[in-house]
Design a protein around this nucleic acid. Structure first.
Length: 523
RNA sequence: GCCCCGUUCGUCUAGUGGCCCAGGACAGCGCCCUCUCACGGCGCAGACAGGGGUUCGACUCCCCUACGGGGUACCA
Protein backbone atom coordinates (compact mmCIF):
# COMPACT_ATOMS: atom_id res chain seq x y z
CA UNK A 1 0.00 0.00 0.00
CA UNK A 2 1.33 3.38 -0.98
CA UNK A 3 1.25 6.01 1.70
CA UNK A 4 -0.82 9.02 0.70
CA UNK A 5 -1.19 12.10 2.87
CA UNK A 6 -2.88 15.40 2.26
CA UNK A 7 -3.06 18.92 3.46
CA UNK A 8 -6.29 20.79 2.89
CA UNK A 9 -5.75 24.55 3.01
CA UNK A 10 -8.64 26.98 2.99
CA UNK A 11 -8.04 29.78 0.52
CA UNK A 12 -7.58 32.52 3.08
CA UNK A 13 -4.87 34.51 1.38
CA UNK A 14 -2.01 33.58 3.64
CA UNK A 15 -0.09 30.56 4.89
CA UNK A 16 -0.17 30.23 8.65
CA UNK A 17 2.92 28.96 10.41
CA UNK A 18 0.95 26.33 12.32
CA UNK A 19 -0.50 25.09 9.07
CA UNK A 20 2.96 24.77 7.63
CA UNK A 21 4.01 22.59 10.51
CA UNK A 22 1.06 20.28 9.83
CA UNK A 23 1.82 20.31 6.12
CA UNK A 24 5.49 19.60 6.81
CA UNK A 25 4.68 16.53 8.88
CA UNK A 26 2.37 15.28 6.15
CA UNK A 27 4.97 15.92 3.49
CA UNK A 28 7.74 14.30 5.51
CA UNK A 29 5.68 11.23 6.23
CA UNK A 30 4.78 10.77 2.57
CA UNK A 31 8.34 11.33 1.40
CA UNK A 32 9.77 9.01 3.99
CA UNK A 33 7.55 6.18 2.86
CA UNK A 34 7.92 6.85 -0.82
CA UNK A 35 4.31 7.89 -1.05
CA UNK A 36 2.41 10.91 -2.26
CA UNK A 37 1.57 14.19 -0.67
CA UNK A 38 -1.42 16.05 -1.98
CA UNK A 39 -3.01 19.41 -1.66
CA UNK A 40 -6.76 19.67 -1.67
CA UNK A 41 -8.42 23.04 -1.58
CA UNK A 42 -10.99 23.33 1.12
CA UNK A 43 -13.19 25.95 -0.47
CA UNK A 44 -16.61 24.60 0.52
CA UNK A 45 -17.14 27.79 2.42
CA UNK A 46 -15.74 30.35 0.02
CA UNK A 47 -17.26 32.72 -2.46
CA UNK A 48 -15.37 33.79 -5.59
CA UNK A 49 -11.75 34.76 -5.67
CA UNK A 50 -10.50 31.35 -4.66
CA UNK A 51 -7.65 31.56 -7.12
CA UNK A 52 -6.42 34.86 -5.71
CA UNK A 53 -6.71 33.68 -2.13
CA UNK A 54 -5.00 30.42 -2.91
CA UNK A 55 -2.03 31.83 -4.76
CA UNK A 56 -0.13 33.14 -1.69
CA UNK A 57 -0.54 29.74 -0.11
CA UNK A 58 0.84 27.86 -3.09
CA UNK A 59 3.60 30.43 -3.28
CA UNK A 60 4.46 29.65 0.33
CA UNK A 61 4.65 25.94 -0.43
CA UNK A 62 6.89 26.59 -3.41
CA UNK A 63 9.18 28.82 -1.40
CA UNK A 64 9.46 26.18 1.31
CA UNK A 65 10.11 23.49 -1.27
CA UNK A 66 7.19 21.39 -0.07
CA UNK A 67 6.17 19.95 -3.40
CA UNK A 68 2.81 18.28 -3.88
CA UNK A 69 2.24 15.31 -6.14
CA UNK A 70 -1.40 16.04 -6.80
CA UNK A 71 -3.52 19.12 -6.36
CA UNK A 72 -3.92 22.61 -7.76
CA UNK A 73 -1.78 23.36 -10.82
CA UNK A 74 -0.42 19.83 -11.08
CA UNK A 75 -3.72 17.96 -11.25
CA UNK A 76 -3.72 14.22 -10.72
CA UNK A 77 -5.87 11.13 -11.20
CA UNK A 78 -8.31 11.84 -8.38
CA UNK A 79 -9.29 15.40 -9.20
CA UNK A 80 -10.78 17.86 -9.13
CA UNK A 81 -8.80 18.97 -6.09
CA UNK A 82 -11.18 21.76 -5.19
CA UNK A 83 -13.97 20.73 -2.85
CA UNK A 84 -16.31 23.25 -4.39
CA UNK A 85 -16.16 21.19 -7.58
CA UNK A 86 -16.92 17.87 -5.95
CA UNK A 87 -20.54 18.43 -5.00
CA UNK A 88 -21.86 15.46 -6.97
CA UNK A 89 -19.67 13.09 -5.03
CA UNK A 90 -20.94 14.47 -1.76
CA UNK A 91 -24.54 14.27 -2.89
CA UNK A 92 -24.06 10.64 -3.87
CA UNK A 93 -22.60 9.89 -0.46
CA UNK A 94 -25.51 11.58 1.26
CA UNK A 95 -28.00 9.58 -0.78
CA UNK A 96 -26.13 6.43 0.10
CA UNK A 97 -26.13 7.25 3.79
CA UNK A 98 -29.83 7.94 3.65
CA UNK A 99 -30.48 4.70 1.78
CA UNK A 100 -28.51 2.70 4.30
CA UNK A 101 -30.29 4.25 7.24
CA UNK A 102 -27.16 5.91 8.56
CA UNK A 103 -28.63 9.36 8.07
CA UNK A 104 -32.09 10.87 8.07
CA UNK A 105 -33.95 13.96 7.01
CA UNK A 106 -34.69 16.14 9.96
CA UNK A 107 -37.29 18.85 9.97
CA UNK A 108 -36.61 20.38 13.36
CA UNK A 109 -36.45 24.15 13.56
CA UNK A 110 -33.24 25.46 15.07
CA UNK A 111 -35.04 26.93 18.05
CA UNK A 112 -36.77 23.64 18.76
CA UNK A 113 -33.50 21.87 18.85
CA UNK A 114 -31.99 24.55 20.97
CA UNK A 115 -34.80 24.12 23.49
CA UNK A 116 -34.10 20.41 23.77
CA UNK A 117 -30.45 21.09 24.19
CA UNK A 118 -30.98 23.59 26.95
CA UNK A 119 -33.40 21.32 28.76
CA UNK A 120 -30.83 18.53 28.73
CA UNK A 121 -28.17 20.82 30.04
CA UNK A 122 -30.40 22.14 32.77
CA UNK A 123 -31.01 18.56 33.82
CA UNK A 124 -27.23 18.19 34.00
CA UNK A 125 -27.02 15.38 31.53
CA UNK A 126 -25.77 14.83 28.03
CA UNK A 127 -27.92 16.02 25.20
CA UNK A 128 -29.55 13.34 23.12
CA UNK A 129 -31.79 14.54 20.35
CA UNK A 130 -35.30 13.11 20.53
CA UNK A 131 -35.40 12.75 16.75
CA UNK A 132 -38.94 14.08 16.96
CA UNK A 133 -38.82 15.78 13.60
CA UNK A 134 -37.14 12.97 11.81
CA UNK A 135 -38.96 12.02 8.63
CA UNK A 136 -39.24 8.24 8.51
CA UNK A 137 -41.48 8.08 5.50
CA UNK A 138 -42.35 10.30 2.54
CA UNK A 139 -45.65 10.92 4.30
CA UNK A 140 -43.83 12.31 7.34
CA UNK A 141 -41.81 14.52 5.10
CA UNK A 142 -44.89 15.81 3.34
CA UNK A 143 -46.56 16.57 6.65
CA UNK A 144 -43.55 18.49 7.98
CA UNK A 145 -43.20 20.36 4.75
CA UNK A 146 -46.86 21.31 4.90
CA UNK A 147 -45.97 23.01 8.18
CA UNK A 148 -43.45 25.06 6.29
CA UNK A 149 -40.48 23.17 7.65
CA UNK A 150 -37.26 22.53 5.80
CA UNK A 151 -35.08 19.46 6.07
CA UNK A 152 -31.42 19.04 6.83
CA UNK A 153 -29.72 15.69 6.65
CA UNK A 154 -28.41 14.38 9.96
CA UNK A 155 -26.25 11.46 10.83
CA UNK A 156 -28.07 8.76 12.73
CA UNK A 157 -25.35 8.25 15.24
CA UNK A 158 -25.15 5.11 17.38
CA UNK A 159 -26.18 5.58 20.99
CA UNK A 160 -24.59 2.54 22.55
CA UNK A 161 -21.09 1.30 22.91
CA UNK A 162 -17.90 3.10 22.14
CA UNK A 163 -15.41 3.74 19.41
CA UNK A 164 -11.76 2.84 19.99
CA UNK A 165 -9.31 4.46 17.63
CA UNK A 166 -5.61 3.90 17.36
CA UNK A 167 -4.06 7.33 16.94
CA UNK A 168 -0.48 7.29 15.70
CA UNK A 169 0.47 10.10 18.03
CA UNK A 170 -1.78 9.57 21.01
CA UNK A 171 -2.18 5.83 21.15
CA UNK A 172 -5.59 4.39 21.76
CA UNK A 173 -8.40 6.90 22.21
CA UNK A 174 -11.93 5.88 23.17
CA UNK A 175 -15.18 7.74 22.71
CA UNK A 176 -18.64 6.81 23.95
CA UNK A 177 -21.13 6.98 21.10
CA UNK A 178 -23.70 8.32 23.52
CA UNK A 179 -21.83 11.57 23.85
CA UNK A 180 -21.97 12.19 20.12
CA UNK A 181 -24.66 14.24 18.40
CA UNK A 182 -26.66 13.61 15.27
CA UNK A 183 -24.52 16.00 13.29
CA UNK A 184 -25.82 17.76 10.24
CA UNK A 185 -24.09 16.74 7.03
CA UNK A 186 -26.24 18.69 4.59
CA UNK A 187 -27.88 22.03 5.08
CA UNK A 188 -31.40 22.88 4.07
CA UNK A 189 -30.05 24.68 1.02
CA UNK A 190 -28.39 21.49 -0.17
CA UNK A 191 -24.82 22.48 0.59
CA UNK A 192 -22.89 19.93 2.54
CA UNK A 193 -20.64 20.22 5.54
CA UNK A 194 -16.98 19.79 6.10
CA UNK A 195 -16.96 16.42 7.85
CA UNK A 196 -18.85 14.72 5.08
CA UNK A 197 -16.76 16.29 2.35
CA UNK A 198 -13.55 15.50 4.11
CA UNK A 199 -14.36 11.83 4.60
CA UNK A 200 -15.63 11.38 1.07
CA UNK A 201 -12.59 13.09 -0.42
CA UNK A 202 -10.11 11.19 1.69
CA UNK A 203 -11.63 7.97 0.48
CA UNK A 204 -11.87 9.05 -3.13
CA UNK A 205 -8.29 10.28 -3.08
CA UNK A 206 -7.08 7.13 -1.37
CA UNK A 207 -5.62 8.92 1.60
CA UNK A 208 -4.03 6.39 3.92
CA UNK A 209 -2.90 8.65 6.76
CA UNK A 210 -4.80 11.62 8.05
CA UNK A 211 -2.27 13.78 9.84
CA UNK A 212 -3.90 16.91 11.18
CA UNK A 213 -4.17 19.29 14.10
CA UNK A 214 -5.51 18.06 17.39
CA UNK A 215 -8.63 20.18 17.26
CA UNK A 216 -9.91 17.49 14.91
CA UNK A 217 -9.48 14.71 17.43
CA UNK A 218 -12.95 15.21 18.87
CA UNK A 219 -14.36 15.29 15.34
CA UNK A 220 -13.00 11.89 14.52
CA UNK A 221 -15.90 9.78 15.82
CA UNK A 222 -18.42 11.39 13.51
CA UNK A 223 -16.02 11.05 10.60
CA UNK A 224 -15.35 7.44 11.46
CA UNK A 225 -19.07 6.86 11.59
CA UNK A 226 -19.55 8.33 8.12
CA UNK A 227 -16.67 6.32 6.74
CA UNK A 228 -17.85 3.06 8.24
CA UNK A 229 -21.43 3.60 7.17
CA UNK A 230 -20.27 4.09 3.63
CA UNK A 231 -18.20 0.93 3.80
CA UNK A 232 -14.87 2.71 3.69
CA UNK A 233 -11.81 1.41 5.41
CA UNK A 234 -10.70 3.95 8.00
CA UNK A 235 -7.46 5.79 7.34
CA UNK A 236 -4.79 5.88 10.04
CA UNK A 237 -5.15 8.99 12.15
CA UNK A 238 -2.43 11.10 13.71
CA UNK A 239 -3.44 14.17 15.69
CA UNK A 240 -0.73 16.74 16.11
CA UNK A 241 -0.61 19.12 19.06
CA UNK A 242 -1.24 22.73 18.18
CA UNK A 243 1.39 25.45 18.01
CA UNK A 244 0.99 27.93 20.86
CA UNK A 245 1.71 31.62 21.25
CA UNK A 246 5.17 32.67 22.36
CA UNK A 247 5.56 31.96 26.05
CA UNK A 248 2.05 30.63 26.44
CA UNK A 249 -0.07 27.56 25.90
CA UNK A 250 -2.76 29.37 23.97
CA UNK A 251 -3.12 28.42 20.34
CA UNK A 252 -1.31 30.68 17.91
CA UNK A 253 -3.66 32.77 15.83
CA UNK A 254 -3.18 35.01 12.85
CA UNK A 255 -5.35 37.81 14.11
CA UNK A 256 -3.76 38.55 17.44
CA UNK A 257 -0.62 40.27 16.29
CA UNK A 258 -1.16 43.19 18.66
CA UNK A 259 -1.09 40.85 21.59
CA UNK A 260 2.05 39.05 20.40
CA UNK A 261 3.81 42.34 19.93
CA UNK A 262 3.80 42.65 23.69
CA UNK A 263 6.06 39.63 23.80
CA UNK A 264 9.54 41.02 23.58
CA UNK A 265 11.04 38.24 21.48
CA UNK A 266 8.21 38.36 19.03
CA UNK A 267 8.45 42.13 18.85
CA UNK A 268 12.17 41.84 18.19
CA UNK A 269 11.56 39.55 15.22
CA UNK A 270 8.94 41.90 13.81
CA UNK A 271 11.35 44.77 14.31
CA UNK A 272 14.03 42.95 12.33
CA UNK A 273 11.56 42.30 9.55
CA UNK A 274 10.31 45.85 9.50
CA UNK A 275 13.83 47.18 9.22
CA UNK A 276 14.40 45.18 6.07
CA UNK A 277 10.94 45.78 4.65
CA UNK A 278 11.26 49.51 5.11
CA UNK A 279 14.45 49.62 3.10
CA UNK A 280 12.75 47.60 0.39
CA UNK A 281 9.71 49.84 0.42
CA UNK A 282 7.41 46.96 1.34
CA UNK A 283 4.10 47.27 3.09
CA UNK A 284 4.27 46.10 6.67
CA UNK A 285 0.61 45.94 7.63
CA UNK A 286 0.20 43.56 10.52
CA UNK A 287 -2.32 41.36 8.78
CA UNK A 288 0.00 40.53 5.91
CA UNK A 289 3.48 41.04 7.28
CA UNK A 290 4.02 39.23 10.53
CA UNK A 291 5.87 36.16 11.79
CA UNK A 292 2.75 34.04 12.01
CA UNK A 293 2.55 34.19 8.23
CA UNK A 294 5.13 32.38 6.16
CA UNK A 295 5.51 35.10 3.57
CA UNK A 296 7.14 37.25 6.26
CA UNK A 297 10.18 34.98 6.23
CA UNK A 298 10.42 34.86 2.47
CA UNK A 299 10.35 38.63 2.30
CA UNK A 300 13.18 39.21 4.72
CA UNK A 301 15.43 36.53 3.34
CA UNK A 302 15.14 33.54 5.60
CA UNK A 303 16.40 30.21 4.38
CA UNK A 304 13.41 27.90 3.92
CA UNK A 305 15.35 24.98 5.32
CA UNK A 306 15.99 26.87 8.53
CA UNK A 307 12.30 27.57 9.03
CA UNK A 308 11.49 23.95 8.28
CA UNK A 309 14.17 22.67 10.63
CA UNK A 310 12.79 24.84 13.42
CA UNK A 311 9.21 23.79 12.73
CA UNK A 312 10.27 20.15 12.67
CA UNK A 313 11.52 20.45 16.23
CA UNK A 314 8.29 22.07 17.32
CA UNK A 315 6.62 18.91 18.44
CA UNK A 316 9.05 16.32 17.17
CA UNK A 317 12.50 15.23 18.26
CA UNK A 318 14.84 12.45 17.33
CA UNK A 319 16.72 12.10 20.59
CA UNK A 320 18.34 14.03 23.38
CA UNK A 321 21.02 15.68 21.27
CA UNK A 322 20.34 16.12 17.62
CA UNK A 323 18.70 19.32 16.41
CA UNK A 324 20.12 19.97 12.99
CA UNK A 325 18.54 18.26 10.03
CA UNK A 326 19.06 18.78 6.35
CA UNK A 327 16.05 18.11 4.22
CA UNK A 328 17.11 14.54 3.32
CA UNK A 329 17.87 13.88 6.97
CA UNK A 330 14.44 15.10 8.01
CA UNK A 331 12.91 12.66 5.57
CA UNK A 332 15.16 9.87 6.73
CA UNK A 333 14.48 10.25 10.44
CA UNK A 334 10.93 11.51 10.69
CA UNK A 335 8.38 9.34 12.39
CA UNK A 336 4.98 9.97 13.87
CA UNK A 337 5.87 7.87 16.91
CA UNK A 338 8.22 10.59 18.05
CA UNK A 339 5.75 13.41 17.77
CA UNK A 340 4.97 14.99 21.12
CA UNK A 341 1.48 15.05 22.57
CA UNK A 342 1.70 18.43 24.28
CA UNK A 343 1.46 21.75 22.48
CA UNK A 344 4.67 23.63 21.76
CA UNK A 345 4.95 27.36 21.89
CA UNK A 346 6.45 29.30 19.06
CA UNK A 347 9.81 30.75 20.10
CA UNK A 348 11.07 33.53 17.82
CA UNK A 349 14.52 33.47 19.36
CA UNK A 350 15.10 29.83 18.71
CA UNK A 351 13.85 30.22 15.16
CA UNK A 352 16.36 33.01 14.70
CA UNK A 353 19.08 30.77 16.09
CA UNK A 354 18.29 28.12 13.48
CA UNK A 355 18.39 30.74 10.76
CA UNK A 356 21.73 32.09 12.03
CA UNK A 357 23.28 28.69 11.98
CA UNK A 358 21.91 27.77 8.57
CA UNK A 359 23.22 31.04 7.17
CA UNK A 360 26.66 30.43 8.70
CA UNK A 361 26.81 27.13 6.92
CA UNK A 362 25.64 28.43 3.57
CA UNK A 363 28.44 28.43 0.99
CA UNK A 364 29.46 31.94 -0.02
CA UNK A 365 28.27 31.53 -3.58
CA UNK A 366 24.77 30.70 -2.46
CA UNK A 367 24.77 33.53 0.01
CA UNK A 368 25.59 35.88 -2.83
CA UNK A 369 22.78 34.46 -4.91
CA UNK A 370 20.31 34.98 -2.09
CA UNK A 371 21.42 38.53 -1.39
CA UNK A 372 21.53 39.94 -4.92
CA UNK A 373 17.72 40.16 -5.26
CA UNK A 374 17.55 42.22 -2.09
CA UNK A 375 20.09 44.70 -3.39
CA UNK A 376 18.17 44.91 -6.62
CA UNK A 377 14.89 45.52 -4.89
CA UNK A 378 16.53 48.29 -2.88
CA UNK A 379 17.89 49.72 -6.15
CA UNK A 380 21.47 49.41 -4.95
CA UNK A 381 22.43 47.14 -7.79
CA UNK A 382 21.31 47.21 -11.39
CA UNK A 383 18.81 44.83 -12.83
CA UNK A 384 20.20 42.65 -14.27
CA UNK A 385 23.40 42.87 -12.24
CA UNK A 386 26.64 43.72 -14.01
CA UNK A 387 29.29 41.07 -14.24
CA UNK A 388 31.30 42.42 -11.35
CA UNK A 389 28.39 42.50 -8.92
CA UNK A 390 29.00 38.89 -7.97
CA UNK A 391 32.68 39.13 -7.16
CA UNK A 392 32.23 42.48 -5.42
CA UNK A 393 29.36 41.21 -3.28
CA UNK A 394 31.35 38.08 -2.51
CA UNK A 395 34.07 40.19 -0.97
CA UNK A 396 31.56 42.06 1.14
CA UNK A 397 29.79 38.94 2.33
CA UNK A 398 33.06 37.21 3.08
CA UNK A 399 34.11 40.16 5.19
CA UNK A 400 30.72 40.45 6.84
CA UNK A 401 30.77 36.78 7.73
CA UNK A 402 28.22 35.85 10.37
CA UNK A 403 26.83 39.35 10.52
CA UNK A 404 24.52 38.69 7.60
CA UNK A 405 22.02 36.47 9.35
CA UNK A 406 19.32 36.61 6.70
CA UNK A 407 19.57 37.71 3.10
CA UNK A 408 17.84 41.02 3.83
CA UNK A 409 20.67 41.93 6.21
CA UNK A 410 22.84 42.63 3.20
CA UNK A 411 21.10 46.01 3.13
CA UNK A 412 23.14 46.86 6.22
CA UNK A 413 26.04 47.26 3.83
CA UNK A 414 24.44 49.73 1.47
CA UNK A 415 27.45 52.03 1.90
CA UNK A 416 29.46 49.80 -0.39
CA UNK A 417 27.01 50.42 -3.19
CA UNK A 418 26.31 54.10 -2.76
CA UNK A 419 28.16 56.82 -4.65
CA UNK A 420 30.70 58.54 -2.41
CA UNK A 421 28.79 61.76 -2.46
CA UNK A 422 25.55 60.13 -1.32
CA UNK A 423 27.00 58.41 1.72
CA UNK A 424 24.90 59.28 4.76
CA UNK A 425 26.56 59.71 8.13
CA UNK A 426 25.27 58.40 11.39
CA UNK A 427 25.02 61.72 13.18
CA UNK A 428 25.88 60.45 16.64
CA UNK A 429 28.85 58.48 15.37
CA UNK A 430 30.12 61.39 13.31
CA UNK A 431 29.94 63.66 16.31
CA UNK A 432 31.61 61.21 18.65
CA UNK A 433 34.45 60.00 16.46
CA UNK A 434 35.16 62.88 14.10
CA UNK A 435 33.70 66.20 15.22
CA UNK A 436 34.47 66.02 18.90
CA UNK A 437 37.91 64.38 19.32
CA UNK A 438 40.56 67.08 19.28
CA UNK A 439 43.05 65.62 16.81
CA UNK A 440 40.65 63.72 14.60
CA UNK A 441 40.71 66.17 11.76
CA UNK A 442 44.45 66.25 11.39
CA UNK A 443 44.70 62.52 11.92
CA UNK A 444 42.23 61.76 9.16
CA UNK A 445 43.91 64.11 6.77
CA UNK A 446 47.31 62.57 7.42
CA UNK A 447 45.96 59.08 7.15
CA UNK A 448 44.19 59.75 3.87
CA UNK A 449 47.40 61.11 2.46
CA UNK A 450 49.43 58.10 3.55
CA UNK A 451 46.90 55.80 1.97
CA UNK A 452 48.40 56.76 -1.33
CA UNK A 453 51.52 54.76 -0.55
CA UNK A 454 50.03 51.56 0.79
CA UNK A 455 50.89 48.64 -1.50
CA UNK A 456 49.11 46.43 -2.13
CA UNK A 457 45.84 48.05 -1.14
CA UNK A 458 44.68 45.00 0.72
CA UNK A 459 43.66 44.23 4.27
CA UNK A 460 46.98 42.83 5.59
CA UNK A 461 49.03 45.71 4.18
CA UNK A 462 46.50 48.25 5.37
CA UNK A 463 46.57 46.80 8.84
CA UNK A 464 50.35 46.72 8.94
CA UNK A 465 50.46 50.27 7.76
CA UNK A 466 47.97 51.56 10.32
CA UNK A 467 49.81 49.80 13.13
CA UNK A 468 52.98 51.45 12.06
CA UNK A 469 51.10 54.75 11.67
CA UNK A 470 49.80 54.77 15.23
CA UNK A 471 53.11 53.61 16.65
CA UNK A 472 54.89 56.43 14.92
CA UNK A 473 52.48 58.92 16.41
CA UNK A 474 52.32 57.31 19.79
CA UNK A 475 48.58 56.88 19.75
CA UNK A 476 46.26 53.91 20.09
CA UNK A 477 44.82 51.97 17.18
CA UNK A 478 41.29 52.70 18.37
CA UNK A 479 41.94 56.44 18.16
CA UNK A 480 42.08 56.30 14.41
CA UNK A 481 40.12 53.17 13.51
CA UNK A 482 36.81 54.60 14.64
CA UNK A 483 37.28 57.93 12.95
CA UNK A 484 38.25 56.26 9.69
CA UNK A 485 35.33 53.87 9.88
CA UNK A 486 32.81 56.67 10.26
CA UNK A 487 34.43 58.70 7.50
CA UNK A 488 34.48 55.83 5.07
CA UNK A 489 31.27 53.92 5.86
CA UNK A 490 29.25 56.57 7.65
CA UNK A 491 28.61 54.18 10.51
CA UNK A 492 29.91 53.32 13.96
CA UNK A 493 29.60 49.60 13.41
CA UNK A 494 30.58 47.21 10.70
CA UNK A 495 32.98 44.45 9.88
CA UNK A 496 36.78 44.70 10.00
CA UNK A 497 37.90 48.15 8.95
CA UNK A 498 40.78 46.93 6.81
CA UNK A 499 38.47 44.70 4.83
CA UNK A 500 36.16 47.65 4.31
CA UNK A 501 38.99 49.85 3.07
CA UNK A 502 40.27 47.18 0.73
CA UNK A 503 36.83 46.52 -0.72
CA UNK A 504 36.17 50.19 -1.38
CA UNK A 505 39.60 50.72 -2.89
CA UNK A 506 42.09 53.51 -2.47
CA UNK A 507 40.33 56.20 -4.39
CA UNK A 508 36.96 55.86 -2.79
CA UNK A 509 38.50 55.75 0.67
CA UNK A 510 40.44 58.93 0.06
CA UNK A 511 37.46 60.64 -1.47
CA UNK A 512 35.22 59.67 1.40
CA UNK A 513 37.68 60.85 4.02
CA UNK A 514 38.03 64.11 2.19
CA UNK A 515 34.28 64.49 2.05
CA UNK A 516 33.97 63.83 5.78
CA UNK A 517 36.53 66.51 6.47
CA UNK A 518 34.78 68.89 4.15
CA UNK A 519 31.46 68.37 5.84
CA UNK A 520 33.22 68.97 9.13
CA UNK A 521 34.27 72.37 7.88
CA UNK A 522 30.83 73.09 6.51
CA UNK A 523 29.20 72.11 9.78
C1' G B 1 -22.52 21.40 32.26
C1' C B 2 -20.95 16.96 29.55
C1' C B 3 -17.13 14.24 26.46
C1' C B 4 -12.00 13.93 24.71
C1' C B 5 -6.70 15.36 24.81
C1' G B 6 -2.61 17.33 27.39
C1' U B 7 0.95 19.15 31.82
C1' U B 8 9.76 18.01 32.74
C1' C B 9 14.28 24.46 33.26
C1' G B 10 11.60 31.21 30.67
C1' U B 11 11.12 28.27 25.69
C1' C B 12 11.91 23.60 22.50
C1' U B 13 12.91 18.95 24.41
C1' A B 14 15.61 13.83 26.37
C1' G B 15 13.65 10.47 29.72
C1' U B 16 8.87 4.08 28.58
C1' G B 17 10.51 1.78 37.21
C1' G B 18 16.73 1.88 39.42
C1' C B 19 21.79 4.60 34.29
C1' C B 20 18.32 11.11 36.82
C1' C B 21 20.12 14.78 43.82
C1' A B 22 17.03 14.77 35.69
C1' G B 23 20.73 15.34 29.95
C1' G B 24 20.92 18.73 25.43
C1' A B 25 19.51 23.23 22.72
C1' C B 26 17.72 28.49 22.50
C1' A B 27 17.32 32.67 25.54
C1' G B 28 19.58 34.88 30.27
C1' C B 29 23.89 36.02 33.37
C1' G B 30 29.42 36.25 34.12
C1' C B 31 34.39 35.96 32.20
C1' C B 32 37.71 35.65 27.88
C1' C B 33 38.76 37.10 22.63
C1' U B 34 38.42 42.18 20.22
C1' C B 35 39.17 48.48 16.03
C1' U B 36 33.16 48.78 16.67
C1' C B 37 29.36 45.17 15.74
C1' A B 38 28.91 40.14 15.19
C1' C B 39 31.21 35.24 15.68
C1' G B 40 33.68 32.08 18.96
C1' G B 41 35.59 29.88 23.81
C1' C B 42 34.83 28.87 29.04
C1' G B 43 31.61 28.97 33.11
C1' C B 44 26.94 29.99 36.16
C1' A B 45 21.90 29.76 37.09
C1' G B 46 17.34 27.24 35.93
C1' A B 47 12.25 22.12 35.64
C1' C B 48 9.57 16.62 36.92
C1' A B 49 1.77 21.22 38.23
C1' G B 50 -0.33 19.59 43.35
C1' G B 51 -2.13 15.55 46.35
C1' G B 52 -2.90 10.50 47.15
C1' G B 53 -1.76 5.45 45.99
C1' U B 54 1.13 0.88 43.69
C1' U B 55 6.38 -0.63 44.43
C1' C B 56 12.27 -2.38 47.86
C1' G B 57 12.38 1.96 44.45
C1' A B 58 8.57 6.58 40.56
C1' C B 59 9.71 11.99 36.04
C1' U B 60 8.24 7.20 34.45
C1' C B 61 2.24 2.99 36.43
C1' C B 62 -2.99 4.12 38.74
C1' C B 63 -6.57 7.70 40.95
C1' C B 64 -8.12 12.64 42.28
C1' U B 65 -7.54 17.97 41.97
C1' A B 66 -5.78 22.25 39.45
C1' C B 67 -4.54 24.43 34.98
C1' G B 68 -4.38 24.60 29.46
C1' G B 69 -6.63 23.03 24.82
C1' G B 70 -10.45 20.87 21.70
C1' G B 71 -15.49 19.13 20.83
C1' U B 72 -20.52 19.58 22.17
C1' A B 73 -22.86 24.49 15.36
C1' C B 74 -27.24 24.12 9.41
C1' C B 75 -17.84 26.55 11.31
C1' A B 76 -13.51 24.45 9.26
Amino acid sequence: MTVRTRFAPSPTGYLHIGGVRTALFNWLFARKHGGQFLLRVDDTDQQRNVAAALEPILEGFRWLGLDWDEGPEVGGPYGPYYQSQRGELYQAAIDELLARGAAYRDYARPEELQAEREAAQAAGGQFTYSRRWRAETPADAARFEAEGRQAVVRLKMPRDGELALGDLVRGEVRFAWASEQDHVIQRADGSCLYHLASVVDDEAMKITHVIRAEEHLSNTPRQAFIARSLGYELPQYAHLPYVAEPGSKTKLSTRKLDKYLKNKDFAALVERGDGIARRLGLATAADTFNPVIVDFYAQIGFLPDALLNYLLLLGWSLDAQREEFSRPQMIEHFSLERVNKAPASFDPQKLLAFQDRAMQQLPLKQKVARCVPFLQRAALVSQPPTCDTGPYLSKILAAAGDRVKMAGDVLDYAEFFLPDDDLPYDAAAFEKRIARPAGARELLAAYAEELAGVEPFEAPALEAHLKEFVERRGIKLADVVHAVRVAVTGKAVGFGLFDALAILGRQRCQRRIARALASLNAG
